[in-house]
């Protein structure tokens, strides 16, 4: 007989390891399956200033490691592998990964979200040739160069501000004529003398030399296109929830998020959705961690 866990958690970000901590501490036989390393999107964040308890901020990678260690202290286990498919029906559920198959009585889906691509053909081949999704990771390669930031939300604007301190010039390309970002970002951005706004435009293509040397921008109002030269492009146009491994077993909303309310219970008994992959009003480290605790509360009732 294969081992049957009480709870398997898919994803080792803040929601996943918070669920693991609560589950292991409640005495559940708990396994976290993470594809790469603890922390998830949080680990790509330079400094997190809005997770309580860290009065001087904390870098996301360290916080991820601490969350993992905190859960493992109570006996939660971690395995590394990519989840290929899950079978959520029935009392015993199966998780297939590229490093083995596992059985469990409950599943917590904490797979998070990935950066939304521009949607260009062969976009993946442009990574490492001037197309970026993480300003804090790659911004330093653009000292005194011209970069383009695509997007108008909080993360795009925060990227543009960060890059404006490194690059010679930042071109902010947004498909609307106003920013969607919170007010707190507006003033510093308007004050940055090297940020230029290109409103009502989307990126329809890149201009290639040996690497990216610019972008073709299409005006959403007039439909006209123009080429704008730049040394690198930073994409920050939102996120796509990571639900491929579910193969349609759970209902998703129009944006691809797993439908579950604040109880985190999904349409299938014993299956919970936590963190950024769930329909929710505010996606933050602290709300992800809260989801993990709530999921275990309802899993305890179920088990």
């Amino acid at each position: 007989m294969a081992h049957i866990y009480d709870m398997i958690i898919l994803g080792g970000g803040p929601a996943g390891y918070s669920a693991a901590l609560y589950a292991a501490r409640a005495g559940f036989d708990t396994l976290v399956i993470e594809k790469m390393s603890a922390g998830g999107q949080m680990a790509l964040t330079d400094i997190i200033d809005n997770y309580p308890g860290f009065d001087e901020g904390v870098d996301g990678f360290t916080l991820g490691m601490k969350m993992q260690a905190g859960a493992e202290r109570f006996g939660a286990k971690s395995e590394y592998g990519e989840v290929l498919s899950v079978d959520l029906a029935g009392e015993v559920k199966t998780v297939k990964t590229d490093s083995g198959d596992y059985q469990t009585r409950t599943v917590v889906i904490a797979t998070g979200a990935n950066p939304r691509p521009l949607g260009l053909p062969d976009e993946a081949t442009l990574i490492g040739r001037g197309l970026h999704y993480c300003a804090h990771c790659d911004g330093r390669f653009y000292k005194d160069k011209t970069v383009m930031v695509v997007g108008g939300g909080n993360s795009a604007v925060s990227d543009a501000l960060y890059l404006s301190r490194i690059a010679k010039k930042v071109l902010l390309v947004h498909r609307r004529d106003t920013l969607r970002a919170t007010r707190v970002y507006h003033e510093p951005l308007m004050k940055a003398s090297n940020v230029e706004f290109l409103w009502n435009k989307t990126v329809s293509d890149v201009v290639m030399g040996d690497r990216i040397i610019g972008a073709t921008l299409q005006d959403v109002k007039t439909g006209t296109s123009e080429q704008v030269l730049c040394d690198g492009i930073f994409v920050s146009i939102g996120r796509v929830p990571a639900t491929e491994c579910l193969n349609g077993q759970l209902p998703l909303d129009d944006y691809g998020y797993i439908i579950a309310d604040e109880t985190t219970r999904t349409a299938i008994p014993g299956v919970y959705a936590v963190g950024d992959v769930r329909t929710k009003a505010l996606r933050q480290v602290v709300t992800a961690a809260a989801d993990g605790a709530v999921a275990v509360h309802f899993a305890e009732e179920y088990l």
């Binding site: 790469m36 922390g39 680990a43 964040t45 870098d59 990771c137």
Partner: peptide, 9 residues
């Protein structure tokens, strides 16, 4: 961050 993820691997 992503570099630190790769390091233990």
């Amino acid at each position: 961050g992503p570099c630190r993820m790769v390091a233990p691997i």
